[in-house]
């Protein structure tokens, strides 16, 4: 409850941190869209976007400019408020996850110890879970407000997919929490950084389940059923144009980055650089190294997402549901039981 007492310096510090994190996330997102196109191109023996600026580096700016300049169309039969609320909600929900991710160790500036984490709540993982479950509303509201059958169908698909995979995701997380004994992401990362093995060593099956579910939650191929063009025209953002469409598209990439950050923090040591003793350098430099390490891990995960997207075709919807309910959930339950048994055996 320190947030509510008037420690102005703390509030300003947190505000600056929030602004930095949100801006960096958006910038990285911008370049993730570029990276997606480049990765797709390279995996398919093409050069990819290379016209705007050197190596096409200005391409995302051009894309963003194009989206902003486009005519904004709100269908007459659409529910106007909800139509606008949808993409905003999708974007907000995906950005809100960044609040509990520890980006690095503490920084010492102007005689203050600044934690590189917006909110160290002791239920960090549950918070992420809550925010992720909110993300569905952006899609559902947008799909319904468009007053289009295809949008509605794909919004329902997105929602049912998200709910189905959330269960397996939660069960995989419970197994992880049994080994860490804490819900706070800061503690989880600090434990991994303090000489222990990374959690993926203890929870390999849990990680695979979590990774697959994260892909499903982000609506990434092979789980991008809500955007299946061949049966739903364009998906839940069919009626959207201009920057509102851009928000939906960006939200997907922000989600991808955030789930990469979460996976890196929970299973791959977060800001922990392996085989490197952070105490040998000054704390500020150690924090910077930590931020860099986490960013590299995020980039690797994002690349993995893209690599999978450009390799594997889309599931059929019944296959998706079968995988979610008949494979992922039993596997996650088994993983949970196994973890519990092993913990008991060790004690």
């Amino acid at each position: 409850m320190t947030l509510l007492s008037f420690d102005w310096a703390l509030i300003i510090e947190k505000l600056i941190l929030i602004v930095i994190i949100v801006l960096t996330t958006l910038l990285i997102t911008l370049y993730t869209t570029f990276g997606e196109r480049k990765v797709a191109a390279i995996l398919q023996d093409r050069p990819g976007p290379n016209r705007a600026g050197p190596f096409g580096l200005l391409q995302p700016l051009a894309d963003g400019l194009k989206l902003i300049m486009k005519e904004e169309i709100i269908p007459t039969s659409a529910s106007k408020w909800l139509f606008i609320l949808g993409p905003g909600l999708a974007m907000t929900a995906s950005l809100m996850t960044s609040a509990v991710i520890p980006w690095g160790t503490d920084v010492h500036l102007f005689g203050r110890t600044i934690a590189l984490q917006v909110a160290d709540v002791n239920i960090g993982i549950l918070y992420i879970f809550a925010v992720v479950s909110m993300g569905v509303y952006g899609i559902m509201i947008g799909g319904w407000a468009s007053n289009n059958k295809f949008s509605l169908m794909s919004a329902l698909r997105a929602a049912s997919q998200a709910i189905s995979y959330e269960i397996a995701m939660g069960l995989a997380l419970i197994a992880l929490l049994m080994t860490t004994g804490s819900l706070s992401l800061k503690t989880i990362v600090a434990d991994q950084a303090a000489g222990h093995w990374w959690n993926v060593v203890y929870q390999p099956l849990g990680f695979i389940i979590f990774f697959i579910c994260a892909m499903a939650e982000c609506n990434r191929t092979p789980f991008d059923l809500p955007e299946a063009e061949n049966e739903l025209n364009f998906g839940y953002h069919q009626e959207y144009s201009s920057m509102k469409l851009g928000f939906y598209l960006f939200a997907e990439y922000v989600n991808m980055i955030m789930s990469s950050a979460i996976m890196a923090s929970m299973y791959f040591g977060g800001y922990d650089l392996p085989f490197f003793d952070e105490t040998t350098v000054a704390p500020n430099i150690a924090a910077m190294i930590g931020v860099g390490t986490l960013l590299i891990k995020i980039v690797l995960f994002v690349f993995l997402f893209m690599w999978i997207r450009w390799t594997i075709p889309r599931f059929r919807y019944d296959q998706l549901m079968n995988l979610g309910w008949k494979t992922m959930i039993p596997l996650a339950l088994f993983n949970m039981l196994l973890t519990g048994a092993l913990i008991l055996a060790k004690l």
Partner: peptide, 21 residues
């Protein structure tokens, strides 16, 4: 948080589902 996850995140989504359909 559990209130949000369970009620706002899961049950209301199902409500919305049914009403939309």
């Amino acid at each position: 948080i559990v209130n949000i996850i369970v009620y706002a995140g899961a049950i209301m989504v199902l409500f919305l589902f049914v009403i939309m359909l």
